[in-house]
Simulated scan of single mutants.
Amino acid sequence: MGYVYLLLAIAVEVVGTSLLKATAGFTKFWPTTWVLIAYALAFLFMAQSVKVVPVGVAYAMWSGLGTAAIVAIGAMFLGEPLSLLKVAGVGLVIAGVVVLNLDGAH
């Protein structure tokens, strides 16, 4: 169940981060409200996750997979440029998450 909570934490954090631009620097009420709710849920789910999943592994997965998802969302929906260097960087982040999980699997 720890990994289910972790995936939920990643999902709502990605939603919150995706909405950050819409807040206009936290000057728009509803986007700001949704960002704060998403981040609160992300921390709630993360706190439940680390009861089972080692903190280092959970945080690596949360930050790594979240980063990869945000780069993809930025490129697909927010008009952000995607370069070969960005793709390589995301690949390295994902490789790091995989290595941490392999070590945590013993």
Rank of each mutant, 00 (worst) to 15 (best):
M1S: 14
M1P: 12
M1I: 10
G2T: 05
G2E: 01
Y3T: 01
Y3E: 01
V4E: 11
V4N: 04
Y5K: 07
L6R: 06
L7N: 08
L8Q: 07
A9K: 05
A11I: 12
A11F: 15
E13M: 12
E13G: 02
E13R: 12
E13Q: 13
V14C: 03
V15K: 04
G16L: 01
T17I: 10
T17N: 06
S18E: 12
L19N: 09
L19C: 10
K21R: 15
K21I: 12
K21E: 03
A22M: 07
A22I: 02
T23C: 01
A24D: 09
A24E: 13
A24T: 07
A24I: 07
G25E: 10
F26P: 02
F26H: 01
T27H: 11
K28V: 15
F29A: 11
F29V: 13
F29N: 08
P31S: 01
T32H: 08
T33F: 15
T33M: 14
T33E: 05
V35H: 06
L36N: 08
I37V: 15
Y39F: 15
Y39G: 01
Y39T: 08
A40Q: 05
A42N: 13
A42E: 05
A42I: 05
L44D: 07
M46I: 14
S49G: 03
V50H: 07
V50D: 13
V50I: 15
K51N: 10
K51S: 09
K51D: 06
V52I: 08
V52N: 03
P54L: 02
P54F: 02
P54V: 05
G56S: 08
V57T: 15
A58V: 09
Y59Q: 01
Y59V: 11
Y59D: 00
A60Y: 01
M61L: 15
M61V: 13
M61T: 15
S63D: 12
G64S: 01
L65E: 06
L65K: 00
T67L: 14
V71P: 12
V71Q: 11
I73N: 07
A75D: 03
M76D: 02
F77G: 06
F77Q: 13
L78P: 03
G79Y: 10
G79N: 00
E80M: 06
P81I: 12
S83G: 11
S83H: 11
L85K: 14
K86V: 13
V87H: 05
A88C: 00
A88I: 14
G89N: 06
V90Y: 08
G91Q: 02
L92D: 07
V93N: 03
V93S: 08
V97T: 03
L100D: 04
L100Y: 00
N101P: 03
L102S: 09
G104N: 14
A105V: 05
A105S: 14
H106T: 10
H106R: 15
H106F: 12
H106S: 13
